[in-house]
Structure formats: structure tokens, C-alpha cells
Amino acid sequence: MAHDHSHHEHSGETLVEAARNALTASGEQWTGMRETVFSELSKHDRPVSAYDIADNLSAARGKRVAPNSVYRILDLFVTNNLALRVESSNAYLANTHPGCEHDCIFLVCDECGDATHIDDEEVSRTVRSLAAAKNFKPERPVLEIRGLCQACA
């Protein structure tokens, strides 16, 4: 059953505010650079790479933003559930409900690059149970199903 839990989807400024609140509640600082990276990330409907974010910020600021700095910030966002990482593409999406913890399940289109995030607690429980049965402790399960979206099929 998808969406076993309820959460509020944020967008625009409310998404940035929700991300700031979630990050500071976890004991981390919300710096100007972190806000800039999150704001840029949240503008994209499709997964975006750290290099794309760095290029966009460099152009907007008129000075180079190093991709490795962006990667560090994105890793912090993933750790604190503010961003989701599409592993196979090495790209990121803003989590539209920061603070809501769940496993990452993506439908990734090989044609257009779109990634649809699905919340399905039953699938998550099954995957975690399978891992536990093999005496494996999953830290961050990620499932990606590659194929074609409806528009590209």
C-alpha cells in the first residue's frame, strides 16, 4: 500500500523553509551556501547533478562554485533527508517533504531522465525484511526501476 504515512508536500519558498527547519532541528547549520544549493536543487523537476548545480550557481554569482563543495552539501542533504539521490544517475532531487523518512523507490526513464519517487511502506518493509533475513542491516535502501515513462513509451 503506497503512502502508509501522511506528509505534506512542499514547493517553492515553503519547501526551502521546511528544509531549513528540518536541517536546523537535526543540529546542523543552515548557511547561505546551503540555502543557495537547496534553492537551486528545488527548482528542478528532474534529477540534477552536482556539476549542473555548480554551473548554474557559478553563472548566477559570476564566480566559480566548485562541484566538490556542492557534492558535500548534497551529501549532507541526503543524510538529513532533504534530498534524494538517484544512484544510477548520480543525480539529486529535492525531497518535497523534508523530515519525512522513508526509503527511496524511483521509476527512472532512460529516454528523458525523469525520475518519479514513490513512497511504498509495504515494499520498504519487504526489502528490509529480506535484508534482515540475511543478517544484513540496511542503512539507506534505494530501489531504482529503469525503463520508459508514459510520455516516452
Rank of each mutant, 00 (worst) to 15 (best):
A2C: 04
H5K: 10
R85T: 12
G113P: 11
D75N: 14
F136W: 04
L107K: 06
D120W: 00
V142N: 07
K43C: 02
C104Q: 06
C152A: 06
Q29C: 09
R146M: 09
N135S: 15
S11F: 05
E101N: 10
H97A: 15
L57I: 15
A25L: 07
C149M: 11
K43T: 13
V16C: 09
Y71G: 03
R64D: 13
V127H: 00
Y92D: 04
H7I: 10
L23F: 01
V37L: 13
N95W: 01
A54S: 15
P67M: 04
D119E: 15
S124Y: 00
E28C: 13
I118Y: 12
L143C: 07
E111V: 14
C112Q: 09
E121Q: 11
C104M: 02
E40Y: 00
E13D: 14
H5D: 14
N80F: 10
N21R: 08
V37S: 04
L15E: 01
E101W: 01
D4V: 04
D114F: 09
L23H: 01
R125G: 03
R140H: 12
C112T: 02
L143A: 10
W30I: 11
H117N: 06
W30M: 13
S58K: 04
F77L: 11
C152G: 06
W30K: 10
S39L: 06
A22E: 15
R64L: 13
S6W: 00
T31V: 10
R72S: 13
H10W: 07
L93Q: 09
E28T: 05
I105C: 03
P67H: 03
G147Y: 00
S129L: 13
K63N: 13
R61P: 01
E40D: 08
H117E: 11
N68A: 09
S124P: 05
V108W: 01
A153P: 02
D52M: 10
G27K: 03
W30R: 08
D110G: 10
E9G: 14
A83W: 00
E139T: 12
R125Y: 01
S89W: 01
S39Q: 12
C112G: 02
A83G: 03
H44W: 06
